[in-house]
Structures are given as C-alpha cells and as structure tokens.
Design a protein around this nucleic acid. Sequence first.
DNA 1: CAGCTTGTTGAACATTCGTGCAACAGTGTG
DNA 2: CACACTGTTGCACGAATGTTCAACAAGCTG
Lengths: 211, 211
Amino acid sequence: MVTTPRKFSRIQPKLRREHLVAATLRCLAENGHAGVSVRKIAAAADVSIGLINHYYPSIDQLISHAYETLSGGIADGLLQASEAGTDPRDSLSRFIAESFGPAILDPKMLGVWVVFWSMVRHSADMAAVQQRTYDQYRAALERHLGALAEQKGLPAMNIRAAATALNALLDGLWLTWCLNPADFSVEEGVAMCEGWVDAFAAGLFVERLKA
Amino acid sequence: MVTTPRKFSRIQPKLRREHLVAATLRCLAENGHAGVSVRKIAAAADVSIGLINHYYPSIDQLISHAYETLSGGIADGLLQASEAGTDPRDSLSRFIAESFGPAILDPKMLGVWVVFWSMVRHSADMAAVQQRTYDQYRAALERHLGALAEQKGLPAMNIRAAATALNALLDGLWLTWCLNPADFSVEEGVAMCEGWVDAFAAGLFVERLKA
DNA sequence: CAGCTTGTTGAACATTCGTGCAACAGTGTG
DNA sequence: CACACTGTTGCACGAATGTTCAACAAGCTG
C-alpha cells in the first residue's frame, strides 16, 4: 500500500477531538481489539502518530472518550425516542423499536463494545462511564414502567428490578443477534420485548418482584 | 519477581493439553485481553514458551480450544442440572438456578468471554464453537418450554423464539451483573427469570410469538 | 551402555506496540 | 518582513509480541 503524502491541515482542538473519536470508533468497528492502536487510529484519521498523544496523554483516555461519546449518543437517541411517546406503553414501544434500530443493532458494533467491556474492570474512568450510562438507561425504563404500572393499577412492586430485567432482555437479544444475525429477525426481537411488556402490564411479575 | 528454576517434567500430550487450557483460562480470567500472550500463558502454566507453540501451531488455536472446553463444561453443567428436573417447570427452574451459580456468575469470567467474542468475527473456528454451544443451550430451553406449553395446553406458538428470549434474558442479566455485581442480587436475577417463565406458562407470549 | 523416541527448552528474529521529543508548517500580529 | 503562537509531524527508543528452530533431558528398548 502506497501512503499518499498527507496535507498539513490545522483545525480547532474541539473539532480535532471529535475527529479523532470518530476515527477511533471506525477503527474499533473495523478491527475489533486490534484497532486499539495509536498507529491504526492515526491512519484511520489520516493524521500523524504524534498528534494522538498530543491530545490524549495515553491511548486509554482516547478510548475512554470514545466510549463516552458513543454511549452518550445512544442514550440520547433512546431517551429522545421514548420521550416522544403518547403514553407509557407507547414510550416503551418506542424505546424498544429504537433499540433495534440499525445504528445500534450492527454486528460491527459488538467489536467496539467488547473493547469497552474489557477495559471496565481495569480502568476507573471506563467503569464510571459504564455506570453512568447504564443508570441512565434503566432510569428511563423505570420511569416508563412505573407510569405504566400506575396506569394499570398494579400493586406496589420492585419497578427497578423490572427495569433491570427489560434492559437485560434488550442487551441479551442485542448480543445474541450480533454474534449471529441470522438467528432471529428484528421483528421477532421486538415481539419478544413487547411480549415482556405485555406480561408486565398484566401484572405477571408482581408476585416475583415484590417491593 | 524471581523466577525459580523449573523442573523438567514430561507428561502425556492429552494431559498437557488440558493443563495448558486450564492455564489459559486462568490467565484470561486474571488479565483479560492482555492474557492472550504466549509468554503470560507459559508463565501461568509454569512451562517454557516453546512448548505452547509445540502443541498449538498458533496461539489462536489454543484460545479456540480453551473456548471449546469452557463452553462444553458449562453446557454439560446446565443440561445435566435441568435434566434432573421432575417436570418441565422444575427443569427450567434448575436451568435458571444453575445459570446463576458461582461457576458461571463470576465477574472475572466476563474478561474471558470478551476475548472469545472478539475472535468470533475473524475466526471460523471460534464462530463454529459459538454456534454449536449456543444451539445446544437453546435446544435445551426449547425442549423444556415446549413440554411446559403442552402441559399447560397452550396453543401452537413459536417456541424457538421463546427459548431465544429466555436465553437472552439470562445472558443479559449475566452481562449486567458481571459489569456491576452490586447492581442486583442473585435472588433478584433468579426471580426475574422465574417471572418470565411464569408469564410464558400463563400464555402471555402466545399472541406476540405466533408459530 | 548405546541408541532411539518422546516431550521439552530457551535463545533468536522480525514485528509491532506506546510514548517522548525536537523540529516543522501555517496563521495571525506587529 | 519578522516574530510569536498554535497545531502538527515523524523519528527514536525500549519494551513486548508470535513464531521458528536447533539443542536438550529423561525414559524405554535393545
């Protein structure tokens, strides 16, 4: 491969950071864990090796920043979509539908998340991001499920646990699908989640998940 | 760390392979992705660097073998546990309880699986193992769910999809818990899954998951 | 004891990695 | 035109990687 000479181009630090993060996500999606490399990311961003270390003292901080950006974007999309619902049940349907959207349900994304998860245990930064965004997801689900429970006149129960379960179902289906997209269709996946919400609304989980 | 001189010891190839696989799993659990290293695994197995390449032409094949061993062991445990059930509902409860056992629900195991998943996309061997063991899990769930549906006199439905959903719920809870063990207790996790089976037995998913 | 087989060793090699650093390019100001 | 400032470059370094290979250790057979 012939490396065409790069043109010198200077942009604002803020834009450069976004640029580097975007290149990082592309690189991770393409190369998985092998994409965690200053040189590969520099090539993907069409930028010199040294520039990355100029903006990020260590590569872990770049990955961490990319994690925060991706998580934030997904969280925004999910919250925004569900907030547009006309009632609690509709909001949950929108949350589910958005979760199975093409931006999230992409086999290449698994390689990205796998890198993130592998760093959560050893990096306090990554753990903090993970905690924050997960709490965000679940709080949203908890809110909608709580409203739905009230609307249906369900007795008091552990809504938090219910939100955890629905989130786990979504994550589990996502993971399963990424590992083998031919396993089930998007419509089936949505149906499984909608069925869970139906059961919740019917009070089927009241007994097992007591407050 | 002072490396004490190693004693020369020769064992049968079969035993040596098991030994190396065990050391590999220990190494991955301890070091995550950084544990994918001939030198680290050799140290963990108290064995020379060259011996590993003697048994496994490339390190990927060692990891693949370790994957197969771990998956097989877990599958055996789950199938054996659920097979001991007195009726379909009991079998499912045993399957669930076993899934939340200490051997599976271990935060360190996340680091191991993360390595495996990261290789599934690029290695045909890994993909084959993934496919085979996943089909095994789901077939077992499908069998028990089918028997339960018949027992309850449920109308015809997509049992395969139901098994996929329950499996996803189990996987999702496992993943969530590994990323943050303080998030919910084992008892809560079991209750979420039992609640799902309750809803299934009550026919709540019949409408959404048609045959 | 020699000879052969089986299992094991660690040095060597070419790559790749993250990071530090001094030099460089272009823009704006005087 | 000179100077300073900001953003960028890529070489250099030491450390770590996977794999190869000729030599070695011990047990078995004759």
